[in-house]
Amino acid sequence: MRARFSLLVPFVVATLGTAFARPVRGDEAAARAEAEAGSRAWAAGELQKAAEAFGRAIALDPTRPSYSVLRARALGELLAEDDLSAPNLARLATVVGIWDELLAADPGNGEYAQAVPRLFERVGDRAGLERWLAARAANPALAPALRAAALRSAAEPFLGRASREAADGRHSEAARLAGLARARLEAALVLDPDSVATHALRVHALEVELAAARQGGDSARSSRLERLLVHARQSVARAAERDEELQSPDDL
């Protein structure tokens, strides 16, 4: 089996409960009933009711993180889109706080790890997302692959903007943005040197930078970037070779 971040820390829902007081049996049943009521409310599109029901389930049985997950999901759906008002940002902070707590208790959980960025995007808080990703990347308690993934996520918007600038002929700005992206990607590769995806994005960043250097007639920089690009492409191939499962026999 490949060693990837999702497997580094196993799924430990069952053990999370040890951090909390055990509910009595009747409370567990009542909590389940509340959670099921929350699910019905969710299905009916009544997200506020769902969040409240999941909240009552947590109060009755705090040992089950799944109730917190469901409450966070419902609260996330209640966030107003593209709304940077103080109340909405406060609600965002609450939901992000729940996810961060869940991830702190189960640092390898991919479901928790991926839940937050879309909340910032929903609200339209790009700066907040960058701050949050930076904090995650710097958090030594998290698995290196997870921190690397945060850095890669932080690089992606710069790459996207760089591609658009390049398409519009603004090569200098494209190169600046691609350089910012590449710095993050290279930091990610220090943490997770075998990520084919990160290596591939670095190739893309270098291609944008090289195009700008050629456009600007900077032959010295072009030569240096060409060498880096050759090396980066080889790194993609080497990372793919190291990942045995990428060499799976054809199945069709």
Binding site: V13, A35, A50, F54, R64, S66, V69, L70, A74
Partner: peptide
Amino acid sequence: GVTPPAMGG
């Protein structure tokens, strides 16, 4: 692990 809202916890 996944926690689908449809499944009551």
